[in-house]
Amino acid sequence: MPIELYLNVALGGVLTGLVYGLMALGLSVIFGVVRVVNFAHGEMMTLAMYAAVMLFVYFKLDPLLLMLPIMATLFLFGYAMQTAVINPFITRPEHSQFILLVAIAIIMINGLLMFFGPNARNVLVDYAYDSYQIGPILLDKVRVIAALAALAVAAALFAFFRYAPTGKAIRACADNNRGALVVGLNVKRLYALTFGLGSACVGAAGCMMVLLVDVTPMLGPTYTLLAFVIVIVGGLGSMGGALLGGLLVGVSEALAGLVLTPSAKSMVTFALLILVLLLRPQGLLGRKA
């Protein structure tokens, strides 16, 4: 019996981990290209989660249907933020960028608090308690759907960067900024696009996450930290690394919650981060700087 229990928990962790991975993918893409660490990343996800909750409550719309409009909204949000506020900070030192994004995070957290109050909210879809059974293994339907949606969005993003001309141009910016300027790419616009795409990713992740956890305004910093851990573990700037890191963190969290106590699960996550930073600072799939 215990083996099956562990297997069940680990698979649940894999599914949650894919959603984590998508969230972290946004952070990784932004850092990889714009070279700014988005310290308001978790807050952006919280914003998307509230959007999903509100639309669900008022219009009874399934968060998965809402994914595209919410992604579009977050895209515009990220695009505008990069253009208006972050662009002048690209050449500034890290601590300066950090304070800027912390200020944005403070405004977002407390703006949400003003509008929605401190209480936890959730989305209860009618399939919330359904599950799939494969032999001895039970999988929550919401987790399966969320994980599949996360994979789909991640695949779309991979394809965009690989095949779309704009995606290629963005990669050129990341590889060689000066070269990109020389061949006439509009780097500022591409940076804004990238920040928008990263935000759209985290928006999609928010729509799925809202199926799995309750949302409060204070959730932001926790997920910002979690996204950092994941991208560092996987390799900052590496897209595959973000997904791998998400999987690792999801599984280790789930198992730690079972073996230790649930409240100690993030200790394992941070221990993982410290180990990776010391032994392989560029992350599991990262390239050496």
Partner: peptide
């Protein structure tokens, strides 16, 4: 010694603080 610097160093310090916080929780 392990050459952790810049953003990575900053995140390492966060990780140690958070690790200790959760440790003290228990």
């Amino acid at each position: 010694r392990f050459g952790v610097s810049g953003v990575y160093f900053a995140l390492l310090t966060i990780a140690f603080a958070e690790f200790t916080r959760i440790g003290f929780d228990h």
